[in-house]
């Protein structure tokens, strides 16, 4: 069983984003880049599965589509414990472009389980995982909050409205994961950081693919009106405001 974790590289979640070039480009000065939180958890779960010898996981690989500047993020994944990595040397143009590059780089590599996160915290697409599965012609399960291996089959928990489904899936499979997949992200130990330097990181050149979407410009959220405060001794006033002013209850 070979597992592949797709990782995206995003600004740290507390970043106050700013834009340059007439709001056409993210201002990257001072940004701390991290592995997308979901992908960190997927990687953690993949390594947990590998730790249990009974699962027969032979390798955990990571893949990322991004320019050379993103390599520290990939090295971090190797330091956490991935065995090897692939970087497709391209600027992600849109989700379709990224998924097409991933599919091209992966084909022929016989990964049994491919993990993607439910969304990248930058463009909030929730799209790359499903697109990749369709490009590869693999089944996919989305909203996955748990994954384990049982007799060569992948068993996943899928969150549905008001409940869960337990699904057994044939491999190869793309699982798009969300909350629950692992508890705490695994962190790199000193030994891992040392080893990461020598682990294989293959660079693949992109194939020609047209993006289907194009950014026009970013906008900042409109500032909200100032908060109206109600006397804590008289919360009834709040209920009245909600009824008569906001008209929502």
């Amino acid at each position: 069983m070979k597992i592949l974790v797709c990782i995206s590289h995003v600004p740290d979640t507390t970043t106050k984003v700013k834009f340059i070039d007439d709001f056409k480009k993210l201002d990257s000065t001072g940004i701390q880049w991290v592995i997308n939180p979901w992908d960190e958890l997927s990687l953690t779960r993949a390594l947990e599965l590998k730790d249990d010898a009974a699962n027969g996981v032979t390798s955990v690989s990571v893949i990322h589509v991004g320019p050379a500047a993103t390599e520290p993020t990939i090295r971090k994944a190797l330091a956490i414990g991935a065995d090897d990595a692939v970087r497709v040397n391209a600027d992600p143009k849109d989700a379709y472009y990224v998924a097409a590059q991933l599919a091209n780089a992966i084909k022929g590599d016989a990964y049994d389980l491919i993990l993607c996160g439910i969304e990248s915290s930058d463009y909030n697409g929730s799209t790359v995982g499903g697109m990749l599965a369709e490009f590869l012609g693999y089944p996919s399960v989305s909203s996955v909050s748990g994954v384990k291996l049982e007799n060569g089959q992948v068993v996943v928990i899928r969150e549905i409205d008001g409940g869960k489904e337990i699904i057994s899936a044939e491999t190869p499979l793309v699982a798009v994961v969300q909350k629950g997949i692992a508890r705490e992200p695994r962190i790199a130990a000193m030994r891992g950081i040392m080893m990461a330097r020598t682990k294989p990181l293959k660079v693949v050149e992109p194939v020609e693919v047209d993006a289907l979407t194009e950014l026009v410009a970013f906008e900042m959220p409109k500032p909200r009106a100032a908060c109206k405060f109600v006397d804590p001794e008289n919360p009834k006033q709040l209920i009245e405001l909600l009824q008569n002013e906001a008209k929502i209850i």
């Binding site: 379709y96 998924a99 995982g129 697109m131 289907l212």
Partner: peptide, 18 residues
């Protein structure tokens, strides 16, 4: 979220998510 990305690739149709 499970269907739209697959549909986008199948129809080669650009996706606007959310």
């Amino acid at each position: 979220k499970a269907i739209a990305p697959r549909l986008s690739v199948k129809l080669k149709a650009g996706l606007g998510a959310g």
